Simulated assay, not measured.
Amino acid sequence: MALQGPVPVTFAMVFPHGCYIVGEVEPVKDFDASSNGRFVQARDKQTQELVWQVAVMDGDPTLKPAQKTVAVKILAPVQPVPPAPMPGLPFTPVEFDGMSVTPYVNAAGRLAYSIKVHEMHAPRQTNQTNQTNQTAKVGKDAA
């Protein structure tokens, strides 16, 4: 099969309704290398970069509560800093770049996905205002 390993995806494909940080950015433990109380941080098998993890809540309103929170692994040489909280919001919105998913079968025998990213940042401003203005202009010109 030609498709092997992590599958590149975009943020909009994985989180079309956005997502929100609901946990701390933490190092991922390498269970094979850690022993006798000594913590060894995991490294990505392909890039050898350190692996960090953050829990995020998917903004999709149709998901069941148990499906809303997922772990996102961040590959970075130093601990990533989450975006600043936004006033008036209970959770901090976040976006990711350099995303990939790796399918696997979990302990319950169900298909699951590991989400890895290379960058975490605050959501970028959309051009929704410009799109609305363009639509209004096209509608006006057509009349």
Rank of each mutant, 00 (worst) to 15 (best):
C19M: 11
P87R: 15
K64P: 00
A33K: 15
E49F: 11
L89D: 02
V138L: 10
R43G: 02
E119R: 11
Q128A: 10
G18E: 09
F15A: 10
P65M: 02
G23N: 02
Q131Y: 04
L89Q: 15
V40T: 07
K73C: 08
A33D: 13
D60H: 01
D141R: 08
Q46L: 12
V101D: 06
V7N: 04
F91Q: 14
V40G: 02
G23Y: 00
V22Y: 01
L111K: 10
Q131P: 00
K68M: 10
S100F: 05
G139E: 08
L3F: 03
V138K: 06
R124Y: 04
P93S: 12
V51R: 15
L50Q: 15
F31K: 15
T10K: 03
P123A: 10
V14T: 14
P61E: 09
F11A: 06
V78I: 12
Q53D: 12
T92S: 13
V28I: 13
Q128W: 03
V78E: 14
L111E: 11
C19Q: 05
G37F: 08
W52Q: 14
T102P: 03
V40Y: 05
F39V: 09
T10G: 11
P80E: 13
G18Y: 02
M120S: 06
V101M: 14
A12G: 12
L50N: 15
N133P: 00
T135C: 04
H118N: 12
T47Y: 03
H121M: 12
T102N: 06
V22M: 00
P82M: 11
N36A: 11
K29R: 15
K29A: 07
A71Q: 03
I21A: 15
P77G: 12
P8H: 09
Y113N: 12
M1Y: 02
T62N: 13
Q67N: 12
F31N: 14
